[in-house]
């Protein structure tokens, strides 16, 4: 195979992975922007979306199972917030983070129990998993579709945040939680809305991710989850475009490292990047500088 072709293929794969990370990263960055919480369970919600698809497609046609998966994931995300995070709103931030870790532990154990710990094959979605040849580059539809779909969803989301009433409320709450509450914004609704959006995008990301990744296992959510979080930090936590840019950078770099033959280090690279960013520019690429008040 020609060298150039090989690199183009790797680049395309990287962009596609980046798009999937971006969809997960938005959930992290929005929740952090509003609740100042690293939602450790977000990666597991992504994993659960994978399992919903496995079980839904076993008995339903595709045009019904995909909306059902999106709906179930949103319900799961919002109920996690209502059950595990809402009672701790006044508690120290460490408690709510521990609660998130507990939810992640619970979801992983539940998935292990329900599936018997065996990896489940992900259903083949026709058309998007077919291969396509452009010139000398062989790739699949999903690789081309992912970045397009990601960008479309992100543009929609940015429009929602910038130009609608709920978006304005979100920006207000993320700027100052208490003042926003005093101004009559129903913060609980805003938080629920954040989780709806985050879980919905994680479900879309999961469909795209698992189409290329043949099986779903209970612990599969952890790594993509952490990487998406790093992407969110890299882009400036709280900023949606930042998270997307960060996710594409991580996805592309990871694939370049893999293609150079250092697969062991492709995961470690993400964290090296995280630490470099935190040292050089803790507020990330697009983040606002925050100062601590006494």
């Amino acid at each position: 195979m020609d060298n150039l072709t090989y690199y183009i293929q790797q680049l395309l794969a990287g962009i596609s992975v980046g798009g999937q990370y971006a969809l997960i990263a938005i959930g992290y960055t929005m929740v952090y922007g509003i609740l100042r919480l690293i939602n450790f369970a977000h990666g597991d919600i992504f994993m659960m979306a994978g399992f919903f698809m496995v079980y839904a497609s076993a008995s339903l046609p595709l045009y019904m199972s995909i909306p059902l998966v999106l709906l179930l994931t949103v319900i799961l995300g919002v109920s996690v917030e209502k059950i595990a995070y809402k009672p701790l709103r006044q508690a120290p931030r460490m408690s709510i983070m521990i609660s998130a870790i507990g939810v992640s532990y619970l979801l992983q154990n539940f998935a292990t129990y329900y599936t018997g710990g065996l990896p489940r094959p992900y259903p083949v979605i026709p058309f998007i998993s077919e291969t396509i040849v452009i010139g000398s580059v062989t790739t699949s539809w999903i690789t081309l579709l992912t970045p397009v779909l990601t960008l479309a969803l992100v543009i929609g989301l940015v429009f929602l945040i910038k130009h609608t009433k709920i978006g304005m409320a979100m920006r207000a709450v993320s700027h100052d939680f208490e003042t926003a509450q005093l101004m009559g914004i129903k913060t609980n609704n805003v938080i629920s809305m954040t989780f709806v959006i985050g879980s919905f995008l994680a479900a879309v990301g999961s469909i795209l991710f698992f189409t290329k990744y043949p099986t779903v296992t209970p612990i599969i959510g952890a790594m993509p989850g952490l990487k998406a979080f790093v992407a969110a930090v890299f882009g400036g936590i709280g900023s949606v475009p930042g998270a997307v840019v960060g996710a594409f950078v991580i996805g592309i770099c990871e694939n370049i490292i893999k293609s150079l033959g250092y697969t062991t280090f492709s995961d470690a690279f993400t964290f090296v990047l995280l630490i470099l960013v935190l040292l050089v520019r803790p507020s990330g690429l697009f983040g606002e500088k925050s100062t601590d008040k006494v």
């Binding site: 460490m94 470690a268 601590d292």
Partner: peptide, 26 residues
């Protein structure tokens, strides 16, 4: 590097370091 960071960043950076150590050993 890590101890200069504030609470949540410290958590995620130390988690990242644990992953890096694991990758190096393997």
């Amino acid at each position: 590097p890590v101890l200069r960071l504030k609470s949540d960043y410290l958590a995620i950076a130390s988690l990242g370091f644990a992953e890096i150590i694991r990758a190096i050993i393997q």
